[in-house]
Every structure is written in C-alpha cells, then in structure tokens.
Nucleic acid binder design. Structure first.
Lengths: 359, 359
DNA sequence: CTGAAAGCGCTTACAG
DNA sequence: CTGAAAGCGCTTACAG
C-alpha cells in the first residue's frame, strides 16, 4: 500500500432544521412542517421556497434517529439474516433475496438497513445491549437457524417483521412469505405419474420443519392416486447402495429427494447410482424438492423446484410496508415454486407416457 | 398465492428506563448509569441489583434511536453505488465489494445502510429532495459514472466519504482506496520481458481516467527498459484484423489490453486472433490489465490482474471509520493488484526465457 | 453517592 | 397562517 497524504478532518456537524430555520428566517417548527410535507396549503409558497432552498444549500437530511424517536417513521427497512450468509458459496442463495428486497424497498421509498448476525450486541455487555433492529421501522428476516432470544424479543414487543420462508410459532402469529412446498411437490409427482411412473421413492428427513412436512404431505397425497400406492416407498435418510438396489428391484423408476444439508441427499443418491451403474434419468428419474446450489454434486442439471427468490423477497417487503402503514394485510403468503425442467427426469424405461399411449 | 389470514396489528410500547426507574424506586438517570455500565463503583451494589432485576422483568432493551440522538452518531455507514449494480451479470463484480464493506462495518461496530441510485430523490420532487446519504454518519462510494451533483453536494458539506477506486478531483481532496495500476502494469510488463518478449503491443483508451493513465505510464516506463523500446506499439482502439496482422509482422509477441467497456477490447482481440489463425498464447501472449467478468469473451483463463475487491472494500470502511472518529488517516491508498497467472501468457515462439538461456 | 435538569433533532398538538 | 412548547428515550455534565 502506498500512502500519499495524511490529513485529519473531523466530521462537520450535520445541518439541522434549526440551521435551516435560522437561514430562512422562520421557526424550526415551520421548517419541519414544510419538509415533512404535511398539508401543502398551510404555508405560503414563498416561505416554502425559501425553506426548501435553505435546506438544499445546507445539504440537509433528516436525522433518522430523531424521527424514529418522536414516533414517526424512519423510512428504513431492516434486512436481517440469522446465518452468516456471506460465505462465498452461499452467495447464489443469498443474493437474489437481497436483490429483491433492495429493489422493492427502493420502489416503496424506503432505504435498506443491513443486519448480519455479528452486528448485534456490539456496545456494552451482551445482556444489556439492545438489538439494533429497532432502528428500522420494520424488518425482513431470513434464515434457518433463528435466534430464539431475538425472536422472542420481537414477538414481545410486537416489532413489525416479515419472515422469508414459512414460519409457524406456537405462541405468536408471525407474518411470512414462503413457498408452497405441498402444492409444488404434488405437481411434480403428478408429472412423474403422467410420464408413466408407477412406483416412486421418496428420500427425506423424518419429522423436520414445516417445509419438510409440507413436502411429504404433498407426496403422500399424490401418490395415493396411483393404482398401487402402497408400492411407493419412503426413506428418511440417504440410501445405502443396497437400499437403492432393493428399490430398483421393487420397481421404483423415479425418486423424489429433499436436498438436505449441503445437498447431501442428492450427492449420496448420485454416488450410489454411479456405483451401481444405474443411469439417471434413463433407468431412474430424480426430482429434487428444493433449489440448492448443488455444490456437492457432480451434475448440476437436476430437475427441481426453482424458488422465485427475488419475487418472494419483493413480496415480503411489500407485506412489511403494508404492515407498517397499518393496512390490513394477508400475513401468510405462499407462492408456488416453478418446476425447473432439468435433465434428470424422463419416462420410465420400456414405458410410454400416458399421452403417447392415448394417441 | 394462498391467503391464510387477515390481521392488522399495531406495535406495542416498549418498556423504557422510566418504567424501570418507577419499579425500582430510583430516578431514570440512575437507571441509565447502571445500564450503560459507566463506572461500577458509583452506585451501590444493592441498588444496581434492584435495577437490573426490574429491567429483566420488564424485558427492557434500550432504544437505539434515542442513544444515537444523544451521541450525535447513529453508527450507520452508507454504501452507495452510482451505477445500478444489481443487474445479474454484474453480481460477480459487485458482490465482493458488498461483502468486504459489510464485514468490516460489522467488525467496526457499524450497521450498513444500502443506497442504490434510484433510492435518491424519492420524497417530493427530485430537485428539492435532500440526499438520503446524510442518513448515515459517512459513506463508501462505488461506481464509474459519478453523479456530479451529488458529488458536489458531498464536497460542499464536507460529508465524510471514501471512494472505492482512485478518484482525483480538481476542486476537492477526496479519500479513496484504489488499485496501483501503474505498478501492477509495470510488473506484468517486466514479467513478459523476463519471458523473452522483446516487442510489445498495448491496446487501450486514449486519455481516459486516472486508471487508464496510470496503466499507460506503467507500460511506457517498463517498455523503456527494452533494447529497442521504439519498436513497441500502442493503439488506442480495438485492433482491426489488418492491424493485428501488421503488429505480428512487426514482431509483436505479446499484447497488453485494457479490458474496456464490457471487456470489448479483449473480445475483439480474441476474435481477430481466431480469424487470423493466431493462437494464444503460442504465437501471441495476451495480458489483460484489469479484472472483468469476461462475459463477452469465449475463453475465461486470461492472464490478468486480480483486483482484491474484498480487501479494498474493507480498507475503505476502515478509512471511513477513522475519518469519522477524527483520527489522522492516510486518505489516499493504492493497493497492488495480484497477477493472476491465467493461460494466455507464454514465452515467445522460438525463444527461451532469460533464465533458461542462462543455464 | 444520587437526583434534577438540559439537550440531542425531530413531530405534533396547541396557542396566538 | 405561523410560532412557542411539549415530549419521544436516552446520556451526561452538574448540583446537592
């Protein structure tokens, strides 16, 4: 690094409404009236102009702390993520949300305040330190591993938040925008059935969160439509090679997979299939019930849900703004995932699709 | 979208120090003293405990807005980008900066306020609206196409900012953290010379910004070391096929390229070489004097500068914080780019490197 | 050792 | 139509 100059410059005092008032020869209250833009008629045009000009000359911007203190609005929206979302391999996941939140906040006339997990609890000891969250008018929340303490603080104080991702709490009614995993799963199963698959397999967690339960409900609902539904299978852990071989023997031609931590389930399935010489999708169709980055798998063209992250983020911001502005709103919104065609689903070997059969 | 509930809910009042004071039978000031944890000895243990307990019972958390109001600081750092940096193909460029800014701001105990170009001038008419920038204590600025009006406003008010990227202004002394393009260019030329190249070509803008001038200075400085420096060439636009052919005829074995808008110069050179059947690097070495995303070129393994974006961003934030806290700081820092080896540079055909010749 | 008071920059009733 | 005043929740000198 090259150092070229050494200058010290203290930050100047920010111009306040009082400064503007002095310059324009009016009272501070009048300045506030004009700048906040209450009703236009009360202050004469001529005074207005003088004040606006003084404000512009001084480079005035309202102090958000003062505004929020007096009970008014900051026009600041928080975006808080529970995990540290900044490790590089998560960017593809995180960035679309940020994008959507940013865009919609801008559209709504709010600025964005970014919180990351470490940001909290800076000044003083942890217990007495406030959540910085309160600086914003409200907050969009994102993350799997929710900080329970923060959450209870939010609920207790009725702080306006909207979750990205479905979130059901026993003791509180939290607003969220999530994905309709049940419906999306049902759709994908129906498409597999339409392609001619008659015996399916499902790999996923046992008793996970809401999302997991929704997917499994969707699966069982639609599998029930099959002529022999009891032949379809479910397994709650990644399959061993032997288990996969047994599934194939029992006639499974398509598998649905919850991605799992770090796409672990998908990676495991891919590896097993390779070892057993089972080709995807020729001998086995695979559909992933999520939208991960596929960092641990070899192929990347998995048929899967595409989660419309930007759209979800935008919707969450809109909901938050409605909440803030006291409008009655739907607090629980689920959007459909888009089925991403991919290259891992095909009609079962030796079978034609229903539609082909018809013709 | 599925709607599940329609509820409107106003936020509850939060417990304040006054509430605690009442409950503990002390004054609000004493509560503040205890909670802020000034010097421990002044308030007797017994009173402390009573206050702490009352605070815990009420679920007290200090109001950050009030805190900032008193302190004159809101511990908010702005990150402002002049271009709309959110188009998807720019993410790779933009994200590392955001990453670095975010990380260092957190480390310094500041929260991040995000500004995008459209954010400015929301309320009221454009001309009368103060820049939202002033919401933050200071701001990190990023972008090629600087908004002159905003910039002059910043300079006039002495608003604390640090630029990412070298920025020299005639009328003001702006703090920045940039890349030392002169030195980095010199280095890469010296390496080419070390590999045995004796006639070089340079493709770049005529009379561009500081960065361009720095690169060209670095180029001419180091080319002067060659036995026949006058044979090295410079061209200020992308080469036509004929021009490239002429360069080759005149003995050019290595070319340095400013990436140009959308990597245009690199793409043009690549295309010309392909049409002329000139293979890179066997017949022509190419080094790119920048670190673009290479979205318009076929190959991506260009030998180039790797700009340490996160590091630069962190450095910018640190400088800003020093500025804010009134410490004397170096206001102009240039960091070295890292030479990214790539696959487009090799010894010239029919030549051995200097070191090989020696052995 | 503790409380009363001023003040940070705003908004919002409330008087003139 | 405009200004004076109160008050948001806190910190920090300043008196007792």
């Amino acid at each position: 690094m090259t150092e070229q100059a050494t200058v010290s410059r203290g930050p100047r005092r920010r111009p306040t409404q009082t400064d503007i008032a002095k310059r324009a020869g009016v009272s501070q209250a009048t300045v506030s009236l004009v700048l906040t833009g209450g009703d236009g008629t009360r202050i004469p045009e001529e005074t207005r102009d003088r004040i606006m000009q003084a404000a512009a000359e001084l480079g005035y911007a309202p102090n958000p702390a003062a505004r929020s203190l007096v009970g008014g609005r900051n026009h600041l929206l928080g975006f808080h993520t529970f995990e540290n979302v900044f490790p590089a391999d998560q960017n593809d996941f995180y960035f679309p949300f940020l994008l959507g939140v940013e865009r919609e906040a801008t559209r709504q006339g709010y600025d964005l305040l970014l919180f990351s997990p470490e940001t909290r609890g800076r000044r003083g000891s942890a217990s007495t330190t406030p959540s910085r969250l309160w600086l914003a008018d409200g907050c969009v929340l994102l993350g799997r591993h929710v900080d329970r303490e923060l959450l209870s603080e939010i609920v207790r104080n009725d702080f306006p938040v909207v979750f990205i991702g479905r979130r059901e709490l026993p003791d509180a009614d939290i607003a969220y925008v999530g994905v309709d995993y049940e419906r999306s799963t049902r759709r994908i199963v129906e498409r597999l059935i339409g392609l001619g698959h008659r015996v399916l397999g499902y790999i996923g967690e046992a008793g996970g969160g809401e999302q997991t339960q929704d997917r499994q409900r969707g699966y069982f609902d639609s599998v029930a439509l099959l002529p022999e539904p009891e032949r379809s299978l479910k397994h709650s852990k990644p399959l061993t090679d032997e288990e996969l071989a047994r599934w194939i023997d029992r006639g499974v031609t398509a598998v649905l997979v919850e991605p799992g931590e770090d796409d672990g389930n998908v990676a495991a399935l891919e590896a097993s299939a390779r070892r057993l010489g089972i080709s995807i999708p020729e001998q086995l169709s695979v559909a992933v019930l999520g939208d991960p980055a596929f960092t641990t798998t070899t192929r990347a063209d998995w048929t899967r849900f595409a989660v419309p992250r930007e759209l979800i983020a935008e919707r969450a911001v809109r909901m938050l703004v409605e909440l803030l502005e006291g409008r009655a709103v739907e607090q629980h919104v689920l959007v459909d995932a888009i089925e991403e065609a991919g290259g891992t689903v095909a009609p079962p070997a030796g079978r034609t699709t229903d539609s082909e059969r018809r013709s």
